[in-house]
């Protein structure tokens, strides 16, 4: 396995043509749980410390992650996630931080009994005048059957799409102080969020 990594080019793992690569490559996500890999890099023209701090305060995730209803801290490493599912239902799980380097990276994974096993890693890199480059890799395992359908819908089928949109909203919030909406009225904006 070490060989596989040594032979790779300089492109990030999420750009790999061989979609099996992430499962072999330990550098994408430590101890991956879940199959589909969704990654996206954005440049955010704010200082790295500010961006890291906002993300590390997990309750903030609900402000820009569309499907996340709430994240509450259980202790300094564990958090409880409530995520929207169709038909007014929610799915919930506990998540634990597996790695945390200030202003560099945060990695997390769901605890063993989670309905939607998932793990993720977000990296922050100081990019000088450009601000901060944020790279996220989120892995999860949509189950089959009826629940699977719900989960697939929840992640809008294509797992990459949801996390891209979430990262764009994160960027908007950090750069502009708000999240862009084309709605004209409060009622329209509420309707968009459901």
């Amino acid at each position: 396995m070490a060989n596989v990594i040594e032979q790779r080019d300089d492109a990030p793992i999420v750009a790999a043509r061989n979609k099996d690569t992430p499962r072999d490559a330990g550098d994408a996500v430590e101890e991956p749980s879940g199959g589909a890999l969704a990654g996206w890099a954005v440049t955010i023209s704010r200082p790295v410390a500010e961006i890291y701090a906002y993300w590390r305060d997990f309750k903030n995730l609900a402000t820009f992650m569309d499907n996340v209803v709430s994240v509450s801290s259980l202790d300094s490493r564990r958090s409880h996630w409530v995520v929207k599912a169709p038909a007014g239902q929610n799915v919930e799980w506990d998540s634990v931080v597996t790695e945390d380097v200030e202003n560099e990276l945060i990695a997390w994974r769901s605890e063993a009994d989670a309905q939607v096993p998932n793990s993720g890693r977000i990296e922050f890199r100081d990019a000088g005048a450009r601000g901060t480059i944020v790279t996220a890799a989120i892995l999860y395992d949509p189950p089959g059957g009826a629940v699977g359908k719900v989960i697939a819908k929840m992640f809008q089928r294509e797992p990459a799409i949801q996390s891209r949109r979430d990262l764009r909203r994160f960027k908007q919030l950090m750069e502009t102080g708000e999240i862009a909406t084309a709605a004209r009225t409060k009622a329209q904006r509420e309707a968009e969020r459901c």
Partner: peptide, 9 residues
């Protein structure tokens, strides 16, 4: 950031 996130695809 001019487009809503969902309209950027």
């Amino acid at each position: 950031n001019g487009l809503p996130a969902d309209n950027q695809d």
